[in-house]
Amino acid sequence: MRTRDRNFWIQTAVIAAVIASLVAVFAYSETKPLKADELAVQIADLRSLCSSGKKMFEQKASGELTDAFFANQIELMHDNVTSLREDLDTSNAEPNLRNALGRSRELAARVDVAFYRLSENGLSEQAAVEAGGLVEPLKQLEDQLKQEAEK
C-alpha cells in the first residue's frame, strides 16, 4: 500500500473514531441518571423563569409592556417551562436524589400550570402570585442540590 493511501485510511479511521466517540458520549449523557448539579441547573432555570413571569406581570399591570410583547414572551417562556417539565418527567436521578427529583417534578408541574394560566389570561393575578410564590421553594431546592453536589 502506498504511503498516500495508508495516510488516507489512517485519517479516515481517526475521524470515524472521533465521530463514534462523540455519538457515544452524547447517547450516554442523554440516558445516564441526573447528578445533583445537573438537577440544580434545571431547577435554576425554572426559578429564573418564575421570577421573570412575576416581574412581567407587574410591568404589564403598570403599563410598561405592550399586549403583543407580553403574550408572545409568556408563550416563549411557557414553551421553555414545558420542555423543562418534560425533561424532568422522563429523567432518572441517582438513587440518593429520588426525593429531590420527585420534589422537582412537583414544582415543575406547578410552574407549568402557572404559566399556562398566564398565557391564557395575562391579567390573572392568581397565576402571577403562584409563579412568584414558587421562586423561594425552587431556590431552596437548588441550594440543597448544589450543597449535595459539593459533597
Binding site: S48, E64, Q73
Partner: peptide
C-alpha cells in the same frame, strides 16, 4: 437581585421597559 438569569432576548428588554 430578582434572581432572573435572562436566557431570552425578550427578558433582557424588560430592563429598558422598567
Amino acid at each position: 437581585p430578582m434572581l432572573i438569569e435572562p436566557q431570552l432576548p425578550g427578558t433582557v428588554a424588560l430592563a429598558p421597559a422598567s
